[in-house]
């Protein structure tokens, strides 16, 4: 698609707001609709749009497959790690109330961390699956 100038310019304009919107959905999930799942998918969509317009090889330079693979496991480990941390601090598994001195504050921290884990895993899985499909044609 290297010769489609309109698509390239439009994509260049669109990709940064899409990434920003993904972060907004990620960290604003406590207050409005959204959360880790949606944010992860939107983030992956921005990377996939980049790959479609500028070629998969350049996208592989932006997000190397090995990094994506690492993040697939890292997000899940972050989620499970929050559970282990709450056990070590004397609560039940995934009981975020013990993460801070105040109950609601601890819940806030816990939800923020696990949503981050969800988002990282979802985005990395989507990008990995896309690489799996896109890499076979060329």
């Amino acid at each position: 698609m290297k010769h489609h100038r309109i698509l390239r310019v439009a994509a260049k304009l669109l990709i940064p707001p899409i990434l920003l919107f993904a972060l907004y959905v990620q960290f604003h999930g406590d207050f409005g609709p959204g959360g880790g799942f949606q944010a992860g998918v939107i983030f992956a969509a921005a990377i996939i749009l980049y790959a479609l317009i500028f070629g998969v090889e350049r996208a592989r330079q932006v997000v190397p497959p090995s990094v994506a693979l690492f993040l697939v496991a890292a997000g899940l480990l972050l989620y499970a790690g929050v559970g282990v941390a709450s056990i070590l601090l004397g609560g039940n598994y995934l009981d975020y109330s013990v993460l801070a001195h105040e109950q609601t504050h601890g819940q806030h921290i816990g939800i923020l961390l696990i949503e981050l884990g969800v988002g990282v895993t979802v985005a990395a899985v989507m990008i990995t699956i896309f690489y799996g499909f896109a890499g076979r044609g060329s």
Binding site: D30, P33, Q107, G110
Partner: peptide, 12 residues
Amino acid sequence: GVPNIVTSVLAS
């Protein structure tokens, strides 16, 4: 203490 109840049910 999270305004979006969907998030609090889902995550907590």
